[in-house]
Simulated assay, not measured.
Amino acid sequence: MTLHKLILEEDICDEFFLIAIHCSEEEFKIAFMINKVLSLRLKRKNNDLDFSIARHDVSYPIFEYENEFNYTKFNLVANKYKYQEVVPNPKNGLFTNVISEKTVTTYLLPEFKNVDYFLKIYSDFEKVPLRNLISSINEIEHVISAYIIDNKQIKSKSHLIFD
Score class of each variant (00 low, 15 high):
L3M: 07
I7K: 12
E9S: 04
C13D: 14
F16L: 08
H22G: 02
H22C: 10
H22D: 12
E25K: 12
F32K: 15
F32M: 11
L38E: 05
S39R: 14
L42I: 11
K45S: 10
N46I: 05
D50W: 05
F51W: 06
I53T: 13
A54P: 00
D57L: 12
I62V: 15
F69A: 10
Y71G: 06
T72S: 13
N75E: 10
V77R: 01
N79A: 07
N79L: 03
K80V: 08
V86E: 15
V86G: 02
V87Q: 12
K91G: 08
N92L: 13
N92D: 11
F95A: 14
N97M: 09
V98P: 00
S100W: 02
K102H: 06
T106L: 08
T106R: 14
Y107P: 02
L109D: 00
V115P: 00
Y122Q: 15
S123N: 15
F125W: 06
S135C: 10
N138D: 11
I140D: 09
I144Q: 09
Y147E: 12
Y147M: 06
I148S: 02
I149L: 12
I149P: 00
I154W: 00
S156M: 05
S156R: 11
H159E: 02
H159D: 03
L160F: 04
I161N: 07
